[in-house]
Nucleic acid binder design. Structure first.
Lengths: 152, 152
DNA sequence: CTCTTGCGTTCAGATTTAGAACTTACTAGG
DNA sequence: CCTAGTAAGTTCTAAATCTGAACGCAAGAG
């Protein structure tokens, strides 16, 4: 199977990965959450090669994660903003950040701090279930398929 | 910058992505959380090409996310299990699942169900802050760098 | 007129991927 | 003994993708 056909799998994770499964894509989104909006700034911050950035931004716009908006005419200049769909990826990025903080840490402490807008204190978000209110980790749950996978 | 040098960025997300930023890698981990442990089963479930699977498993073992364990001698047979470090990636996978469920859904409903082991009901995990107990989304928080990035 | 900025595209060479075939080591069946 | 099957890989080649540099274009600054 080719990676480009991954969206054919009957699995929400595979579907999600068909959009954000690429490393540069994720890095671009991370910067987008840090309020980066312009081509050249994405280039500087991510370090991605120019054609890659161009390609990934195009794909993200196509999939509705980013919106390309003109912020200047004469000359035409564009910026890329997270849509509602894109903003909903926040838990993915935050989870990666938390994991990186915990397991890939250097001696200088975490490079990025996440502050609660309302009260200004540092937050360390974790997963919980809105229905029962309990904190959740891998061992608290069990995932299973609801449909039988198509025979190959 | 090459993708392989991405771990040099002073950012926990980039550090995390240097380990799990690859699409097949994530797909492999998803299956690992679904209790897949053997080479041939990963092959069937992910649809990844053989050499890719071999390479990615090796990398995941090297980075301490999976543990390679012999489950048979004569002939030697191995299985791959999530370590504690690997289990901690659960929020990343669950976030991808939730996002896929919401935004990439087909008409048949979500393919995978996540059940709370204790009470057996379906859970839809979300992000919250353990300190203040509030539910969090992208717009509730503000991220900023604690260190000045090295000049290029 | 030349330089700079912003946002790209194009190109050639290096790297990676995809898919099939092959390897190794053992078991089971006839 | 011979053949087939299973599990876990490795090796090979063509095709696709990535990388880095150069180029394009439209406008403003000096």
């Amino acid at each position: 199977m080719r990676w480009t056909d991954i969206d054919q799998q009957d699995c929400s994770v595979a579907q999600a990965l068909s959009v954000v499964g690429d490393g540069w894509t994720m890095l671009i989104l991370k910067e987008a959450f840090m309020r980066v909006r312009r081509f050249e700034e994405f280039l500087d911050r991510t370090g991605a090669p120019r054609p890659i950035l161009s390609d990934r931004l195009k794909a993200l716009v196509d999939s509705g994660v980013l919106e390309k908006r003109k912020y200047s005419e004469r000359p035409d200049r564009f910026e890329y903003r997270l849509t509602e769909k894109g903003l909903d990826l926040w838990p993915v990025l935050i989870s990666l950040l938390r994991w990186g903080d915990k397991w890939m840490t250097t001696d200088e402490g975490p490079p990025v701090e996440v502050l609660h807008r309302r009260c200004g204190h540092t937050v360390h978000p974790e997963m919980a279930c809105p229905e029962c209110g309990e904190w959740l980790t891998a061992t608290d749950v069990e995932a299973h398929r609801r449909r039988i996978p198509a025979p190959r």
